[in-house]
Design a protein around this nucleic acid. Structure first.
Length: 409
RNA sequence: GGGGAGGUUCCCGAGUGGCCAAAGGGGCCAGACUGUAAAUCUGUUGGCUUACGCCUUCGAAGGUUCGAAUCCUUCUCUCCCCA
């Protein structure tokens, strides 16, 4: 088997492909131009996008030529695949802005200075399409009957599917067609929810250009507890530090379930497969340590080594490990003068990201989950003063895991 | 175009004039147990207030009423049936 394909399989990136022997042969034969799409529906990529990013990085390491396609054109429509509700329409400006920030994040995974890696925006060819021409040339090759048999559309038929969303498959197929014609792209990779769209693109290319191309999908990553990957109640875990602080990002991965550690190490780090398996097979204190490795390695890739160190040190400081430093902990500066008069605990907690309101702070205290420094807060009328300051800062705790650093200036 | 059913707090879902900040479940947060895990049990879960209480919330805007999530009018969105 081709080594690149082997790595993808070993690491859990392989769900299904259109024809394995053809794909294998293609990869063996030489550098393959491949693409994966990213929808700029938000200003930042989130954890759900990590799998295709890592897959692209792996393939590039084997010399294959990646195209990261930002869906500046398609994002204006919305893909119904896997969605149960209609997507919000975005304005052209929003999409453009989003596309810009996605590019920077993708660049952390793909080296655009090597292997002729490309970053394209499908608005380039979609925006100027002529409706009539498109129907004549592309639309006639699609059978509505066939499209309706796709699982993703079936589901949407129950709740409602607008015509423009229904057209998504045509546009994505057209993307593939254009990329093959212009850049010789012969492989599309994506999440398994994209299977239908990928196959449709393949069919279109076979019909119009009589050319053979391949598709490969990744499994939908699930957590062992059945919850959605990369989602918390506060929303998705984003790659942008402004949206998900590095410390929170680190902590998310630090807290994954035991059963997921090995799988996630293979998917979300570049550590050798054997090492990932070994780490994931650990138990007790060992698995706990493996989680730190997972969190650290991934944070390093997304936010850089310096930030990853900070986050790890902050976590260690908080949870009592060695080599701790509080620098990476979420923090807030408060003038010393304010402390002179004393600040009510409720007000102080409500100011931080620990509590959204004073009511929430009150509940936290009532539940016995709030601490100032090492002292548990038992009275909501308590006042925090300069006496509580240690080394120029006050550490607030909400529960065992959430910490906040007040820096006195 | 005609007819019907609906839009409730983070989600699902009760509520059909005052006892409703709104049942129940899920989730979230916290406590116990632990390994910053899982499972389990317990508590909590709109905002402000020391408190009495006040304010905002039941698709939107008006109206009836001492009082509306609940009644009326208009608008809007979703689903279903017919054309």
């Amino acid at each position: 088997m081709n080594p690149a394909l082997k790595v993808l399989k070993e690491r859990g990136f392989f769900q299904q492909c259109t024809d394995e022997s053809i794909l294998n042969g293609m990869l063996e034969k030489g550098e393959v131009r491949f693409y994966a799409g990213f929808d700029p529906t938000g200003p930042s990529l989130h954890c759900g996008h990590l799998v295709p990013l890592f897959a692209m990085a792996h393939l590039q390491k084997f010399g294959h030529k990646p195209i990261a396609l930002v869906g500046g054109g398609t994002a204006r429509i919305g893909d119904p695949s896997g969605k149960t509700e209609m997507r919000k329409m975005l304005t052209v400006e929003q999409v453009k802005e989003n596309a810009e920030s996605l590019k920077k994040q993708i660049a952390r995974f793909i080296r655009f200075d090597e292997n002729e890696a490309l970053l394209l925006d499908n608005a380039e060819w979609l925006a100027s399409l002529n409706y009539i021409d498109f129907l004549r040339e592309i639309g006639r090759h699609f059978s509505v009957n066939k499209m309706l048999t796709f699982e993703s559309y079936k589901k949407r038929l129950e709740t409602g599917l607008s015509f423009i969303e229904f057209n998504y498959q045509l546009l994505q197929s057209y993307d593939f067609l254009i990329l093959r014609r212009r850049y010789g792209c012969t492989l599309q990779i994506g999440g398994d929810d994209q299977w239908g769209n990928i196959v449709a693109g393949m069919d279109l290319i076979r019909r119009l250009d009589s050319a053979e191309v391949c598709g490969l999908t990744f499994p939908l990553v699930t957590r062992s507890d059945g919850k959605k990957m990369g989602k918390t109640e506060k929303g998705a875990i984003f790659l942008d530090a402004a949206m998900t602080p590095v410390y929170d990002f680190f902590q998310y991965w630090r807290n994954v379930a035991d059963a997921d550690v090995g799988k996630f190490l293979k998917l979300y780090t570049f550590l050798p497969t054997a090492e990932c398996d070994a780490l994931g097979a650990r138990t007790d204190a060992g698995i706990n340590e493996a989680k730190e490795i997972l969190a650290y390695e991934l944070t390093k890739i997304i936010h850089g080594e310096e930030e990853a160190d900070k986050a790890r040190n902050a976590a260690r400081a908080v949870f009592g490990g060695s080599g701790g430093s509080r620098e990476g902990m979420p923090s807030l500066e408060i003038p010393a003068a304010e402390l002179e008069n004393g600040i009510n605990v409720l007000d102080l907690f409500a100011k931080t990201s620990l509590c959204a309101s004073k009511g929430e702070a009150r509940r936290l205290i009532a539940g016995g989950g709030a601490s100032v420094g090492e002292t548990k807060v038992t009275d909501e009328k308590m006042t925090v003063t300069a006496d509580d300051v240690t080394d120029g800062e006050i550490i607030l705790k909400a529960g065992k895991k959430r910490f906040f650093r007040i820096i006195v200036v």
